[in-house]
C-alpha cells in the first residue's frame, strides 16, 4: 500500500539552530497519528515543512508516492494535503456556509468562474451547506464567522478542511484555546472524519491525544525520541523525562 504521506529524513535549520533533525514519518491511509512534544520541540516547524511554508534543507516529502518537496502550498492542497490552523484562520467577512463554499469552489477548480451571480453555483452552495450541517453548524451557518463564538469557529475550520476532501489532514491543535468542557465537541467532529483519511494530529492536550490517536510520535528538540501505540508511549521513560524537562 502506498503511504498517504511520507516524510523522509527531513532536516531543517534556522541559522545554527537545528529544529528538525532527521525526522521520518509514514502515514498510511486511515491513520490516526498524533505528534506530541514539549514546547519548542519543532512541531510547528514540521507542519510548515509538510505544508510547504518552509523548504527543508535535506530530505523529501511524498504525498501518495509523489514527491512534493518543492511544490507551492496551494498545489499541495490540490493534491489532497489539507491543514487547519492553530489559531483560528478563516475569512471573517464571510458567513460560515460561505467559508465552506469557498473551499468547495476552489477544490473543484471554480475559483476563476464567472458563472453564478449569487456568489456560488447552486450545487456548490448545497454541498457546502450539507458539510457544515454535518458539523452541526446549520443553525449558525449564515452568521459571519467573525461574530461566532471561538468554539464554533474551530468547527468551521474543520468543516472547511473536510470540504477540501483531504487524503491527508494535518490538524494543528484543533482544540487550542478551548476550555476542556468544549473538547467533546471537537472530539465528536474528529470521530466523524471519513475512515480513509490519514490524520496527523499535533496537540498539546494529552488526554485528547490518547483518546484519538492509534499511534503516537514524540518529538523533542527536533528529534523523534519515541514512537508507538499510546500505551507504550505512556510507559516510555524518555518521554516522561522530556516532558519533565530533565533530559540532561
Amino acid at each position: 500500500m502506498t503511504p498517504a504521506l511520507e516524510l523522509d529524513h527531513l532536516v531543517m535549520r534556522f541559522g545554527g539552530l537545528l529544529v528538525t533533525n532527521d525526522v521520518s514519518l509514514t502515514l498510511h491511509p486511515g491513520a490516526r497519528h498524533a505528534l506530541i512534544g514539549p514546547n519548542g520541540a519543532g512541531k510547528t516547524t514540521l507542519v510548515n515543512l509538510v505544508t510547504g511554508r518552509l523548504r527543508p534543507r535535506a530530505g523529501a516529502i511524498r504525498l501518495a508516492g509523489q514527491d512534493v518537496t518543492r511544490l507551492a502550498p496551494h498545489r499541495r492542497t490540490r493534491l489532497g494535503l489539507v491543514r487547519n490552523f492553530q489559531v483560528t484562520n478563516l475569512f471573517p467577512s464571510f458567513s460560515a456556509f460561505e467559508n465552506v463554499a469557498l473551499a468547495v469552489a476552489e477544490r473543484d477548480g471554480n475559483g476563476l468562474s464567472l458563472r453564478g451571480r449569487r456568489g456560488f453555483a447552486p450545487a456548490v452552495a448545497d454541498e457546502a451547506e450539507a458539510i457544515a450541517c454535518d458539523m452541526r453548524l446549520g443553525p449558525i451557518g449564515t452568521t459571519l464567522v467573525r461574530d461566532l463564538a471561538y468554539g464554533q469557529q474551530r468547527l468551521v475550520e474543520l468543516a472547511v478542511a473536510l470540504a477540501l476532501r483531504p487524503r491527508v489532514l494535518l490538524l494543528d491543535e484543533p482544540a487550542a484555546g478551548l476550555p476542556s468542557a468544549d473538547h467533546a465537541m471537537i472530539l465528536d467532529a474528529l470521530d466523524a472524519l471519513p475512515a480513509e483519511v490519514a490524520v496527523l494530529l499535533i496537540e498539546h492536550d494529552i488526554p485528547l491525544v490518547f483518546r484519538f490517536a492509534r499511534e503516537i510520535t514524540v518529538l523533542a528538540e527536533g528529534t523523534v525520541i519515541a514512537r508507538g501505540a499510546p500505551d507504550a508511549i505512556r510507559q516510555d521513560a524518555g518521554v516522561r523525562a522530556a516532558y519533565l524537562g530533565s533530559r540532561a
Binding site: 496551494h74 492542497t77 490552523f85 475569512f91 471573517p92 464571510f94 476552489e106 477544490r107 475559483g111 456560488f120
Partner: peptide, 26 residues
C-alpha cells in the same frame, strides 16, 4: 457581474486572509 461571481468571492477571500486562501488551494 465580476464581484458577485465565484471569481469575485475568491478575490474577497484573498483580501480577508491570503494565508488561508492558499491553504484552501487558491
Amino acid at each position: 457581474w465580476l464581484v458577485h461571481a465565484p471569481f469575485g468571492q475568491s478575490v474577497m477571500a484573498i483580501r480577508d486572509n491570503p494565508g488561508r486562501a492558499a491553504a484552501i488551494g487558491v
